[in-house]
Design a protein around this nucleic acid. Sequence first.
DNA 1: GTGGTCTAGACCACC
DNA 2: GTGGTCTAGACCACG
Lengths: 134, 134, 134, 134
Amino acid sequence: MLLTIQANDDRPIYLQIVQQVKYAVAAGVLAPGVRVPSVRDLARQLVVNPNTVARAYRDLQTEGVLQPVRGTGLEITSAATKRCRDDRRELVRQRLRSALEEARHSGLEAHEVEHLVKQEFKRVNGRAVSGDKP
Amino acid sequence: MLLTIQANDDRPIYLQIVQQVKYAVAAGVLAPGVRVPSVRDLARQLVVNPNTVARAYRDLQTEGVLQPVRGTGLEITSAATKRCRDDRRELVRQRLRSALEEARHSGLEAHEVEHLVKQEFKRVNGRAVSGDKP
Amino acid sequence: MLLTIQANDDRPIYLQIVQQVKYAVAAGVLAPGVRVPSVRDLARQLVVNPNTVARAYRDLQTEGVLQPVRGTGLEITSAATKRCRDDRRELVRQRLRSALEEARHSGLEAHEVEHLVKQEFKRVNGRAVSGDKP
Amino acid sequence: MLLTIQANDDRPIYLQIVQQVKYAVAAGVLAPGVRVPSVRDLARQLVVNPNTVARAYRDLQTEGVLQPVRGTGLEITSAATKRCRDDRRELVRQRLRSALEEARHSGLEAHEVEHLVKQEFKRVNGRAVSGDKP
DNA sequence: GTGGTCTAGACCACC
DNA sequence: GTGGTCTAGACCACG
């Protein structure tokens, strides 16, 4: 399992771990039934406090992404893939909503917002959205 | 000046004050030269410790939104309006970018993202974006 | 008597009054024996709180620049002119010393400091110092 | 890290801390990446309230001199050294300008000012400026 | 352990 | 009256 944590990131480390695991699950890199590294191993690998990994794993269990396998550690649940994919879609939706509400609250005109969306879409995807004539 | 602080909000109180003042400035509700309530008055009004308001006002000064008028209080600076508007536009841009990067990172198709954008745009603005056929 | 106070100035208003009076005295604009405006008049003229003018006049009395004339107000003392001129020279000396100590404390090389001095001298006086070849 | 705060100083304690840290950074005593003492430790060492140190550290963060390393404390940023050096040079320049403007405003002759500069330069540095014949 | 936030209450200079 | 500074002590999230 390949995770990278960034000290500069404004998100706490345990959250970075949680989110990256969920990304890997949604992307199919971590399939149901696969065992994740032990708390100690992952902590060593990430050069991070074991408490931090434990916290992340705990949250992932609460979310139903990980489940304990008696005596042997933690593994990806069977429902994890769908759950993580739904999560991701919902996350995108919420961020878009937040951005658009901010725009509206800021009194930006609709066409200005459209412009911003297209601009950033190109920036992120490296190509135009449909209907855009570059 | 009408401010409302929410205890449930995950943002600290002083930040809520800072942001709401900047909103009011950007919206023109607080024009340059206008005096803001005294630290004590606003603290009373918001049922908050005066130090918390003072912290917010201090931050607004370092951002160049407020300036002291010796002995008589604080007022909106002449450059405040532009500064706050620029801030807001940039905030929208960053949130859009974040959402779109999340979408890309999540492997959503371009047309799916467009769909989401239009959906949320309608939800927020109560009408369609140009080029959308309702 | 022509005084101008600036709200933006970081010095308190009462000090601005004190210093400007002393400037006028040093420059000979306010000669010994001349009466200064009453507290109320000057306060009106400067659009300032009378307390502030009173404070300034009090300080000027403490410094021996003003003295009360029974029943008629305050006037410039006979010793005021010399006193104010000495003050000014001393003020310049202190500021120079402060700047040079800061420079030394900051580890600036002697020739760098000289360069700065000449640069700023030109800026302020509009011409070169002796020994400088423009 | 060796800091000393002076109760007599007219500058607030938090500012003394800020400035001394910036001095140490500019002088290279505090290099980028170095961790500063914890708020509590420095507070104990200086016999000062932790909030006061926290305020100073917060200001240093907004100035980009310190950055948080999550959960482990604060460290000197990579850009800190240049930033602090520029600050110091600019401070010297401003003080010199202030002194020279005062001199000009006071009607001192150019050669008088030069004399003062040389005098104070010697006093501060213990030796003559170039071009001066001791 | 770390920093961040908040409250409560005090003193100061300035107006 | 105003803002600015400082102290004391509390709680929180994070590691």
